[in-house]
């Protein structure tokens, strides 16, 4: 009996393999949508790691908090203030969620990480793990443990192909997600590459001590990095809410780890790498659940993380780490 279990074929390929190109195209669309969300979260990880060299464990939970903020604001706007035009409500929710999530992230950095700068190496990481646990349980305490569903929005679909073996469709929410991601990444890229603020950030990333000597307020720059990461996580949270239609206090951990995987895959510290990594992880996850086994889709993500870290620790676009004595 135990031997049957051990040697029994576990990964039976699903029937969907027979559905051909159309099915594959549909999965690619779904994968890009999911990957956009992962990419937005991954930027927060990669920027913080680039600037202070710590894995901000609480970032996944900041993302979860932002999804809750978006949900509550959406309810307040539609039921209390009575905005009926969905597009307007969406834009207001997006902006407000970015603001309030930034306040959270700023406070977390100020209270839990800044006092530990210069402390021993594991301290910020353990503090971040504690913060992550605190955030999840705080949301559970104030918002309750149940799933929070919202009414579906942007749900109309456009048929891309029809008449074949499988109709490829594109839902409006997928268009919204991809469009918002592209717009925000452009804005964000402009800030990092073209403004004095972005220059200060890149300077701190290269050499914090030297940047401080040259008159850059390093603490302020780090705070702003956290705020930017949180703002993008808030966008991801709002989009996640639209895509999946509900949110739960425990929803921060798994997307957080996957986004971190994306950041590592793209090369930690590299912002374009985080986006590419996010898209890749999203696609791999969707294709894996479509063709192989949806039970093991998280195992696939974790396995990618391990494989990448072992064989390609600098990632796709990252710089190799040189060990100096």
């Amino acid at each position: 009996m135990i031997f049957d279990a051990l040697f029994g074929a576990r990964f039976l390929f699903k029937q969907e393999r027979a559905l051909g190109m159309e099915f594959f195209a549909q999965q690619m669309i779904n994968g890009i949508t999911l990957g956009s969300i992962y990419g937005l979260i991954a930027i927060g990880y990669t920027m913080v790691f680039g600037i202070i060299g710590m894995v901000n464990f609480a970032h996944g939970d900041v993302f979860m908090v932002s999804a809750f903020i978006a949900l509550l604001l959406f309810l307040a706007l539609t039921s209390v203030i009575g905005i009926t035009w969905l597009v307007l409500a969406f834009i207001i929710v997006l902006l407000l969620a970015m603001f309030f999530t930034s306040v959270w992230s700023w406070t977390i950095e100020r209270l839990a990480y800044r006092p530990l700068r210069g402390s021993f190496r594991l301290a910020p990481m353990i503090s971040a793990i504690g913060m992550s646990i605190f955030l999840a349980n705080f949301v559970q305490a104030v918002q309750g443990p149940r799933n929070k569903p919202i009414p579906p929005m942007f749900n109309e679909t456009i048929a891309v192909t029809s008449g074949g073996a499988f109709d490829v469709t594109l839902a409006w929410k997928q268009i919204v997600i991809i469009a918002v991601t592209i717009i925000l990444l452009t804005v964000f890229w402009y800030i990092v590459q073209k403004t004095p603020l972005g220059r200060a950030q890149r300077a701190c990333e290269q050499d914090r001590k030297m940047a401080a000597l040259l008159g850059i307020d390093v603490n302020r720059t780090i705070s702003i990095t956290f705020i930017m990461g949180a703002a993008l996580a808030a966008v991801a949270g709002t989009l996640y809410l639209i895509q999946f239609g509900n949110v739960n206090f425990a929803d921060g951990f798994i997307p957080g780890v996957k986004a971190f995987t994306a950041a590592v895959l793209g090369g930690i510290g590299s912002i374009p790498g985080a986006v590419i990594g996010g898209l890749l992880i999203g696609m791999i996850e969707v294709l894996w659940s479509a063709y192989v086994s949806s039970d093991y889709k998280n195992v696939a993500a974790f396995a990618i993380l391990i494989v990448v870290l072992i064989f390609m620790p600098q990632g796709l676009l990252g710089k190799p780490e040189i060990e100096k004595v």
Partner: peptide, 11 residues
């Protein structure tokens, strides 16, 4: 909740 907070404070 207390456990998470305690970890941060302890650090």
């Amino acid at each position: 909740l207390i456990f998470g907070l305690a970890m941060v404070l302890m650090m």
